[in-house]
Nucleic acid binder design. Sequence first.
DNA 1: CCACAGGACGGCT
DNA 2: AGCCGTCCTGTG
Length: 288
Amino acid sequence: MEEQIYKIDNIKSFEPVHIFDCGQCFRWDAQPDGSYTGVFKGNVMNVKKEGNTVIFKGICKGDIREICIDYFDLERNYEEIKEQLSKIDNNVKTSVVYGSGIRILNQDLWETIISFIVSANNNIPRIKGIINRISKKYGKEIEWNGNKYYTFPTVEELAKASVEDLRALGLGFRDVRVYETTRKILNKEVDLKELENEKDTEKVRETLLTLPGVGPKVADCILLFSTLKRFEVFPIDVWVRRVMNDLYIKNPDETKVNKREIEKLAKEKYGDLAGLAQQYLFYWKREA
DNA sequence: CCACAGGACGGCT
DNA sequence: AGCCGTCCTGTG
């Protein structure tokens, strides 16, 4: 396949470091020149920002422009979203300025499910290592500029892995969860196509929760960070709990803060933009 | 040696 | 329902 290039001048609300380091994805790596290279949906791509221009370059399965518009959520008006969020309070306003170039990626549902099952009680370097090893062993190889990249395996490809195979890749106790979830999706006990067409968010969440390894937090991450694109959900992890407690609740012991209290607060304050608010707050608090 | 990391799960009250 | 110990592994 031929390399393609797509360039956007005068782009707004697009900062590679914000997008790839705000915790939504695991397959993008910073390059020595400050650009990022990643593999998604069978494509290999490099993203570089020079001034107000973004250059997308890569080996794509279709038209690079259409692929980027979809994956990087380019048709959504983040300027307007940030303006709305800034009106809520000064905390959110500060976080929005801090992570002004964040965008929520349109990631493959299947890959997002497995990735966030792997993320449970885990740290980012190790999560990335595990997903890379899974891809190298069960995905397809793509060569570009003398480097080899590996697509995230399809359901059928990953179904070839036994529990022992997964354990050998370093998944730890998550091996059985990934194995069983793969089986459930393979035999259509959970049909991902149907899930993508389901309008009712609560129904989608309930279905996700039937997958081994998918609890409340992982389900919300899948709802927000995949093609399901539910911007109203508010994934609560230790960092978000910490932020919400520091900013609003102010309980001396943050581990005692009730999760439902945080959910209620997020819904009241952020409404349908709760997921986006979560991303700005998370990035702000974790980096600063 | 120990704590901890972007939780889930099962077995208790 | 809520609480709590345990689950693999690498890093400090």
